[in-house]
Structures are given as structure tokens and as C-alpha cells.
């Protein structure tokens, strides 16, 4: 249970927890990376819905990085996974070694005519669950931010 101040977030009281890892396309690697961040969220009393949201967004971003970003590259090619966590916000950066992509080129999977196409929903879910999702550089680096909802 949290015993934090009832007077709202006191920004800047503690430096953010920063972690940077290389993650290969193996379940153990992915889960190890997730586990550190998700337990950090729990430690900072983020609600269960936040843990669900962040986990889903990381899974989707990693699938995009490995499947599309690293398409045709050796399967062991790692992505850089990093995050910066404070008591009310987390920023997650995932950078692959691929050529990058243009998010505007992704078709809208929610249109009736696209509903029965099996792929292309990852970015939609990332955007739905995160406060912000942006592609940096040549489009091989995604930055996602989740903000803890106000209490209530």
C-alpha cells in the first residue's frame, strides 16, 4: 500500500529510475525486461490497469520491432529497451536496428472492411493505452509515455 503524501505529486523529489537493456526475441528476455518495469510500477502504486496497459503496449512495440523492424535480419538481433520511471509517469523507449517505418502508412484496422484482416492492430492498441506514442529518428525508435491516472 502506498503511504505517499496526500497533497498530490511532488515532482522532482526523487530522481527517476532509469534502466536500459538489450532484448533479443526470446520469451525469457522479453519477460525479464517487462518484469523489472512492471514491478517498478507496482512499487510506485500504479493501479492494476496501468500494469495491464504498459505490458500490452510493450508487447505490441516489441512485436513490431522484431517482426517488422528486424524483418530479414538475424533472429538474435536485439532491440534497445529503456525506461525512465517516476512515481507518476513512465517513459518507455524501444529502438530497433531496422530501417524504420512510417506510422501514417498503417491502414485503419477498425474500418468494417478491415476487421477480418488478422494483423495491423499493434499500433492502435499502443495509442489507446498510452498517453502518447511517437516515432523518432528514421522511425525505428518508438517512445511511449504512460501517466498514472489521478486518484479517484
Amino acid at each position: 500500500m502506498s503511504t505517499t503524501s496526500p497533497h498530490g505529486p511532488d515532482h522532482g523529489q526523487q530522481p527517476p529510475e532509469r534502466v536500459k537493456l538489450l532484448v533479443a526475441n526470446r520469451r525469457e528476455d522479453i519477460e525479464r525486461a517487462e518484469k523489472g518495469l512492471l514491478s517498478g510500477l507496482e512499487r510506485h502504486a500504479f493501479p492494476e490497469a496501468a500494469v495491464f496497459a504498459v505490458r500490452l503496449a510493450i508487447e505490441e512495440a516489441l512485436v513490431n520491432a522484431f517482426k517488422h523492424g528486424h524483418h530479414g535480419m538475424p533472429p538474435e538481433t536485439p532491440v534497445t529497451f529503456s525506461y525512465s520511471l517516476t512515481r507518476d509517469r513512465v517513459q518507455i523507449d524501444i529502438e530497433d536496428q531496422g530501417p524504420g517505418f512510417t506510422p501514417e502508412d498503417v491502414r485503419d484496422p477498425t474500418l468494417d472492411e478491415n476487421l477480418d484482416i488478422p494483423n495491423g492492430r499493434g499500433l492502435l492498441l499502443m495509442r489507446a493505452y498510452m498517453e502518447s506514442v511517437e516515432y523518432l529518428g528514421k522511425g525505428n525508435h518508438v517512445r511511449m509515455v504512460y501517466v498514472k491516472p489521478a486518484q479517484g
Binding site: F52, R55, L56, E59, E60, V63, L115, D116, I117, P118, N119, R121, G122, L124, L125
Partner: peptide, 16 residues
């Protein structure tokens, strides 16, 4: 408890 869009994709293929 958790599923990704790839699992949704599998369900869509099954539906098809």
C-alpha cells in the same frame, strides 16, 4: 489475463 494483437489475429484467422 493477457493477450496481444497477435492473439487477436489468430482469432480472426479462426473466424475466417
Amino acid at each position: 489475463d493477457h493477450m496481444s494483437s497477435a492473439a487477436l489475429g489468430a482469432m480472426i484467422s479462426i473466424n475466417n
